[in-house]
Amino acid sequence: MVIFIYVLLGIGVLFNGLGSFALLRFPDVFTRLHGATKCTTFGSIFTILATVAYGFWGVARGIQGDLTLAIHALLALIALLLTNPTGAHAIARGARRSGVLPKRAVVDAYEGYKFEEEE
């Protein structure tokens, strides 16, 4: 069980690092968003799953209060999963509409797209 938790933590830390490294490595906003959103969400899922596994392991050994830990961590995971892709989409849309063009783009279907005036 301890080894299982170590493996979960290792995968999580690895992918989180990859996500932050992608921020430095990629050339423009959109590709950076790719790296940052996907990798940090995936890594955070694994680190939080490690916490959940630890909590349920504690419940199995009869330690008081670990069930609360696991359930609250799961709720944090749900909040993260719901909010992260939506935030990335909002940033991408804001960036594109404010005039940041994707670098080295092969095709840009967004050219000539008419913004409708929303009220």
Binding site: F15, A22, R25, F30, T31, G35, P102, A105, V106, A109
Partner: peptide, 16 residues
């Protein structure tokens, strides 16, 4: 994404 971070081989674009 890991593969692309390490090799840097990208070909981006916006499609519909």
């Amino acid at each position: 994404v890991a593969y692309r971070v390490i090799t840097g081989r990208i070909k981006p674009g916006i499609i519909k």
